[in-house]
């Protein structure tokens, strides 16, 4: 990657095509709207070209481009999130809430078959391409509104107060939705990547 010289980016470098594809996939997961995702990536690329001089070469080019893309997506979400009715979000989270309650018995203990097993060396998964394919598939499987809140929190790094304000939901509701999202993602990775091995409780 030609990212050593400050402010000099070779825009014809073939590796940029791959970065662009990754950016597009990231934006699509965030927005679940192919057209809007395309627009965000395009805007991010324009900004990157325009502000090329501010790229100091200290971080990898890809990291820098992703940070620009994230800012574009945050702006877009701030503009559009009021369109999502808060009441909708609440209803959506109640629907898939039952799945998680079913993991526990009436005293709130794990059902034996639902106890989270130990994951063998999860850190090493992070360097495997197949892991990220599963990770993306699991993200994609979250209910859309749950996913939206999770993305705003984890990928766009907004705090819960801001998310609540944007979406017009209460803070505690926001925490509940985030909990559902994380628990859902955990279950999906457990099932599709890490495999099964029960832990005693």
């Amino acid at each position: 990657m030609n990212d050593t010289a400050a402010g000099r980016i070779d825009w014809n470098d073939p590796s940029l095509a791959k970065i662009r594809r990754d950016m597009l996939r990231f934006a699509q997961l965030q927005l679940r709207d192919a057209g809007a995702a395309e627009d965000m990536v395009q805007e991010a690329l324009f900004s990157a070209m325009k502000y090329e001089a501010s790229f100091a070469g200290r971080s990898a080019l890809k990291t820098w481009m992703f940070s620009i893309l994230r800012n574009k997506i945050v702006d877009h979400i701030r503009k559009s999130s009021r369109e999502i009715a808060g009441a909708d979000l609440v209803a959506g989270s109640a629907e898939d809430g039952d799945d998680f309650d079913a993991l526990f018995d009436e005293r709130g203990h794990w059902n034996p078959e639902d106890r989270p097993p130990t994951w063998a060396d999860p850190e090493s998964s992070l360097s495997q391409q197949q892991f990220w394919d599963v990770f993306e598939a699991c993200l994609d499987r979250l209910p859309p509104k749950t996913s939206r809140v999770f993305m705003m929190r984890e990928f766009l790094d907004l705090d819960t107060d801001e998310i609540c304000a944007e979406l017009g939901i209460s803070t505690s509701n926001c925490w509940v939705i985030l909990h559902r999202a994380r628990a859902g993602l955990r279950m999906c990775l457990d099932r599709d990547w890490f495999g099964q091995e029960q832990a005693p409780c």
Partner: peptide, 19 residues
């Protein structure tokens, strides 16, 4: 696993997906 998810999402959002 909750903490692992946090570190995975951090990695993912930097575009550091895969090797």
């Amino acid at each position: 696993q909750m903490r692992f998810l946090r570190s995975a999402t951090r990695r993912y959002r930097e575009g550091q997906r895969g090797p």
